[in-house]
Every structure is written in C-alpha cells, then in structure tokens.
Design a binder for these strands. Sequence first.
DNA 1: CTGAAAGCGCTTACAG
DNA 2: CTGAAAGCGCTTACAG
Lengths: 339, 339
Amino acid sequence: MTSRYGTRPTMKDVAAAAGVALKTVSRVVNDEPGVTAGTAERVRAAITELGFRRNDSARLLRTGSTSSIALLLEDIGDPFSSALSRAVEDIAAERGCLLFTGSSGEDARRERDLALAFCARRVDGLVVVPAGDDHRYLLPETEAGTPVVFLDRPAGGIDADTILSDNAGGARDGVAHLIRHGHTRIGFIGDLPRIHTSAERLRGYRRAMADAGLPVDERWIATGPTDPAHVTAALTRLTSAPQPVTALFTANNRITLAALHRLAHHRDRPALVGFDDLELAELLRPGLTVVAQDPAALGATAARTLFDRLGGDASPARRIEIPTRLIARGSGELPPPAR
Amino acid sequence: MTSRYGTRPTMKDVAAAAGVALKTVSRVVNDEPGVTAGTAERVRAAITELGFRRNDSARLLRTGSTSSIALLLEDIGDPFSSALSRAVEDIAAERGCLLFTGSSGEDARRERDLALAFCARRVDGLVVVPAGDDHRYLLPETEAGTPVVFLDRPAGGIDADTILSDNAGGARDGVAHLIRHGHTRIGFIGDLPRIHTSAERLRGYRRAMADAGLPVDERWIATGPTDPAHVTAALTRLTSAPQPVTALFTANNRITLAALHRLAHHRDRPALVGFDDLELAELLRPGLTVVAQDPAALGATAARTLFDRLGGDASPARRIEIPTRLIARGSGELPPPAR
DNA sequence: CTGAAAGCGCTTACAG
DNA sequence: CTGAAAGCGCTTACAG
C-alpha cells in the first residue's frame, strides 16, 4: 500500500513495478491474448500491490464511446419520472451503459443547459422529456452523431424519435366509460392548453362526446394552472352551475389529487375518472377509477429506440404511442343522480 | 457546416480554420484573458462555422476532477429513492456537478459492481444506499481520495460518513402516540430483523412500551418478509388471538400498504400508525397516521457532507440522524374498543 | 510474446 | 498577446 492519499496508480506505475512495458499491463487488464502466464502473474501482483484500477474515463476518451447515456426528466423526484428512470436504467445496464439523470424542473433554459452539458461530456445518447418547445439547439449534436429520443412530449423544430402515451385515446376511453355509466354532462379539468399532453387529452374528451352524439357546453371545460386553488375553483364552478355536470374527467394526477381533496366533503359526489394512476387509489372509498399510463413501457421503448440508433439504425424518425389502460375501481362507475 | 456525420470538430480543427494555435482557441473557449478582440472574433467565427463544442470528458481527464458524482440507490423507481435523488441532484447542480444514478435492486453484488464502475469513471464522490453489509471493497477508493457517504443504512467494515433517519426515535414516537390514545396491546409488524432499519424500529417500539411501563407479549411482534401474503398472515394472527392487539405499528410502507388492504374490509379496525408516508394518506377514511421520514433532508445532508469532504474536510467520519415527523390523520387516534 | 511510438482532445507550464 | 511542447491515462497501430 504505497498509494498516497489522492494519488492513484496508473498503468505506467504498474508497468514500472512489474518491470514490463505499459502495453503489457494494458493487455493483462483487458484480458488480451499474447502474454505469458508468468508475465501476467507479475503484472497482476503489481496491480494488487498498488491497488490499481483502470481509469475508464481515460480509456473511453481513446475509444471514442463513453458507455453512458443521459436521461433528462421533468423532476426525478416525481413518481412518473422515477418509473421512467428505472426502465431506462435497466435497458442501459443490459448494454453495460451507465446513466446520467437530470431534472429540468419544467424550465426550458435548464433543459437546454443540462442537455448540452451531457453532450459536452459526449454521452453516447440522450433521452429527453421536453420542458421547452424548441429543440433546434440539439441539431448540431444529432448531426454530429449523438442520437436523441424524446419521451412523453413531442420535440420542437427537430425531426427525431418520439415516444408518447396515447393521450387522446386514453382520455377518450375514460370519458366513454363515464358515458357508458349514464353521464351526459361531463366536465373536463385540464392543464394549460399549450401543453401537448393537455391538448391531446382534451381532444380525446371531445372525440368521446362526439362519438356518443353528446353536445359539449364549453363551460364544462376548464383548462389552466393545476395548483389546488385553481382546480378547486374550477370544480366548484362546474358542479354548482344551474345545470351542473354529473361527472368529471381530471386530466392529470395533480388535478385529480386536488379534486379528490375538494370532493372528500362533498355530498352527491360526481363520478370521477382521472388520467394517471395514484398509489392508494384502490383504497379510497369509492376506489379511484383512472386511465393509467405505462411509464415502464414508455421508458423501455425510449431506451431501446436509442440503442437501436446507436446500433446503426438510420431509418426515418419514429413516433410510437404507448397504450393506456382504464382501471375501474368505483369512482368512475357512480351513476348520475336520478332526475 | 462541414461536419461529417459522427465526426466532431476539435480545437485543432478550429485552430486550423482560424489560423491560430490550439492554445489560443482554448483561451477563447475558456474566456481566459490575453487574446486580442480581433483574434477572439476570428476564433469565435470558426467555432460557430464548424459547430465546435468542447469535449468536457477530455478536459476533465487533464484537469483531474470529473465534476460528477454518483448516487447508488435501492431502486430509482420507488418514491423514497427518487426523493433522495432529487435532493442530491439539487445540491450537485449548485456545484456544477452532474449526477450518475444507479439501482442495486437490494443486490449486494450489483451494488459492488455499480459502485466500482462509478469509481472507475473517477466520479468525484459517491453516495451509497447500502444493499450489502460489507463495504470493505470501497477502502482502496476512499484511500485513493474518493469520498463515499452512506445513506439510509449504515455501511459495514468501513469508517465513513453515514446519514440515517432516526428510525428508533420515530418508531418510539409512533408507538407512544398509540399508547397516549389508550392502547396497551400493540402489535409490531416489521421487516427481517437483520435489516438495520428494521431492527432500529423494533427497538423504538420496545422503548416506547417500556417507557410506559407496558409489558410486551412476544407474540405481538411479527418480523419477516414484507410481501402482502406474509403481512396479511401476521395481521390475522395478531388481531384474531384470544387477547387480540387493539393497535398496530407497521414498520415500513410496503407493510402499511398490505395492512391497509387487509383492514379495508375489517370491522372494529385496530388503530394503525405506519412508518413512511404515502401519497393519498390523508384522503383515506380514516386518514392514515404515519411517522414520516424526510427524504429531502436525508439526500441534501448526504450530498452536503460529500461536498464538504471534497472541499477538504478531513475530520472524523460523521453519523447524522435526521428527525422523523409524526402526522396524525385519524387511523392512529382510533380508541381501543370499550371492554 | 513484448514493446516503443503516436494519438484520443484537451490543459498546464513555459518561452517568446 | 501568442504559441510550441509536454502530459492527463489510456488504446491503437505497428515493429521486432
């Protein structure tokens, strides 16, 4: 143990200790053929004695690939992002790839800074959950051969692989479910309409209503910020109108949560279907009926697409929609009040 | 745009294009002084024209630090791990550090492989949520100057900074809460006792009972695997004995979840306090009373400790306990049945 | 089977 | 103000 604190032995040190050339050490470390058993033994002894461990960053600089990819999320701390991460990590691990993760916090500027920082590290590829809507800043990177796959939301200004949930189809299914249970006046509470997922879910709502031949009163549709105060206000407006809605479709988990809080003390609860599943949904009374996304499939598909590109797939950019699943647990099967 | 696909321009290319030396390009890229405005302008033009972006991996090889740290979790996909990640990422970002994350899946072997892979990349430091109980494999790394901070569970065979929840104190608070509400026969359902957090929480249970002068019947204590089947069996045993317990302390979120499922159809529900908070806990009827950990504080403290070490702090290894918080919502305030 | 030289893309240390 | 040389820790390409 001669290593001074903070100084690591290099192949050069090992070579000197074993009385061989650098290249011979490299051969032993990498299990390359062409080293006598005796020489290899001497080298291994020196490696153990010095506590040598190969510097992979140096190795990878020479090699050209970094064996790492980056995943840029909205917020690694939320359950949806973390489920995506796990799926991406598993696929990366199969390929011997390490994973950088980073959170944009919905800030387009931070998304850009992080993405470019990852590219500057020369990650082999990038999976991005977009925060902003202009991704032309990534064009030089993709042109230089760093593949980028967009996840959960579409990118702007760049033609690249995109993996999305079937937002419109899922919302349509959820609303159709409410219609099947006798509802005709159905409210929609959603996020800002400029957000792609939000617009798609609203489209699904309209489609379900149209498919059933039901008219839509525009006052039944509330889009805007998803903080509890706004959601609560929208909910009150929809349920206390002269002709109140008898059912609600809440278009994401934050909205569903706020609505549940508001409805907890509500008599004559409207039926409710939410987009996104929640942890204790089946333990509520009534159980919460949801349109669940499949984050594991989203993440895995994004990662596989990325590795396909790294493997040389040069076909046109793909756009893949992952199906959602309706889980009926009670709240979506409440009948409308008898008139 | 002369970049061929897959080939990135280097400082050498920029230098040639601008008709200057490599070093001058470096100066411009790094905003170092000592370049005339005109020269700098020529260099910048060449950078833009070629689409040059500095290779930070190469830079960092020369510099010695990688400006990255790694966080090794049990499973990035679970809410506790992801909350830790976010906290660590925020502190790392303040320092301009990128974050590798990886999941051991509770497998000691995988923990080791991942930790050493990160060390081989020469991350500046490592935060590890232990899966195994022998971490001597990290001794050469810490000796070589790579600081390691252990999080959520203690390490084995290595003297290093450790950040833990106050598991014993939290469990004691939860059980004392049940005692204050009139319970004397209180069941404990916990994980395998060889797991540190599990043993500590059991210790807290015993302490609360002893502090109140209450005897403990060993049949009230069930430790073992935390799959729903085992938990349900334990629960049935505890609540259907001749002298059943009137209250339960469930020692982690998986156990609490399984217990809630089992109790949903139960008349004369026992009071319940769970260790770990759950997302919809306050919307249940009764609301779920919990002892909540503070993953944000755990992660932030671990990351700060790591950066203290990187900043040169060479004081003895620290062991920091983060307080828990009792959140009363109803289930823990149910009285024992009148006799 | 073994090794000396060149190079991955940068920064450091020094000279003009 | 500018640059030529050496070096970070490895691998590649080639020679003996």
